[in-house]
């Protein structure tokens, strides 16, 4: 190049914020005091942007007394295809998250109603669904079926996990088949979609809730925005595939702020769940 590119200092570099104290909103750019943000359930007070939170935070937020009787926490991914670097990536995500895989499930109560609660975690391989995620989701559905209590699955996922190849694709069939059996027993399933829920997970259990609730501003769909833009050769509007868009297109029942999520779920369960749990 014949000219020297001027390197402009980006504002965040100039500010040099201590990130343990301050957080910048991804959407409106507002600088927020971390403690305040946490108190506000990680919702930007200025623009209502919902920061991504992990499954443990959701447990505290949604379950009565934050009580969660976790099941099958020990299940770990294998490396069935001996896929390059897979084992290494799993190990590093396990250390990072202190979880064995990208989903937890267990027994809990919401508004006094016993439920099976299943929550995915985006920090672990982008919430991608391999064999263990599929298996734990399937087991959680069976648990709801056996105990005859409602099922809540909170999803966040980039889709099927490539490193387990075809086995990951089959988890779509596996989980959907279990939901078909649950539906035959008239046990309610509430699907909660958080940012983002796409591809293989969106095209299986996440879309099969009797009631589907999305957090505001979540990116939801089958194909990711970038690939669609490549396919059709044009830019998509910013609201494309966001929760409001999905509501307008009839794909979700409700868009509910994180602050009202627990209340909304328990209100719904009180109306639609009139069974009684199976006795031991």
């Amino acid at each position: 190049m014949w000219f020297k590119k001027k390197v402009k200092a980006r504002p965040e570099e100039k500010l040099k914020l201590p990130t343990d104290l301050w957080v910048k909103c991804d959407t409106c750019g507002e600088i927020l005091y971390r403690k305040e943000l946490e108190k506000n359930l990680w919702i930007c007070p200025k623009c209502e942007f919902h920061f991504r939170i992990n499954c443990r935070t959701y447990i505290k937020l949604l379950l009565d007394d934050a009580q969660f009787d976790e099941q099958d926490a020990h299940l770990e991914p294998a490396d069935p295809l001996l896929f390059p670097d897979y084992k290494k990536k799993i190990k590093s995500d396990q250390e990072k998250t202190n979880m064995k895989e990208a989903v937890v499930y267990g027994y809990a109560k919401i508004g006094g109603i016993p439920v099976v609660f299943t929550a995915m975690d985006f920090r672990f391989r982008g919430g991608s669904m391999g064999s263990v995620v599929g298996e734990k989701v399937a087991r959680s559905i069976r648990a709801a079926c056996e105990k005859r209590i409602p099922l809540i699955i909170l999803s966040t996922s980039g889709g099927a996990r490539m490193q387990e190849g075809i086995l990951s694709l089959m988890q779509m069939a596996k989980t959907s088949a279990e939901l078909a059996l649950l539906a035959k027993e008239s046990i309610p399933y509430v699907s909660i979609l958080t940012n983002p829920t796409t591809a293989g997970v969106m095209a299986s259990y996440a879309s099969l809730g009797d009631i589907i609730i999305a957090e505001p501003g979540a990116e939801l769909g089958f194909t990711g925005r970038r690939v669609i833009e490549q396919t059709i050769g044009e830019k998509l509007p910013p609201d494309f595939q966001r929760s409001k868009f999905m509501l307008e297109h009839g794909m979700v029942d409700l868009v509910v702020s994180r602050k009202d999520l627990k209340n909304t779920i328990s209100k719904i369960l009180k109306i639609i769940y009139h069974g009684s749990p199976a006795t031991e």
């Binding site: 779509m172 078909a180 299986s204 879309s207 669609i228 059709i232 998509l236």
Partner: peptide, 20 residues
């Protein structure tokens, strides 16, 4: 099909419902 119209008409829902 990874296009915008497919998304608008519920590509995910269509696949999931078939499996179900």
């Amino acid at each position: 099909y990874p296009g915008a119209d497919a998304e608008e008409r519920g590509q995910s829902e269509a696949i999931a419902t078939n499996l179900f």
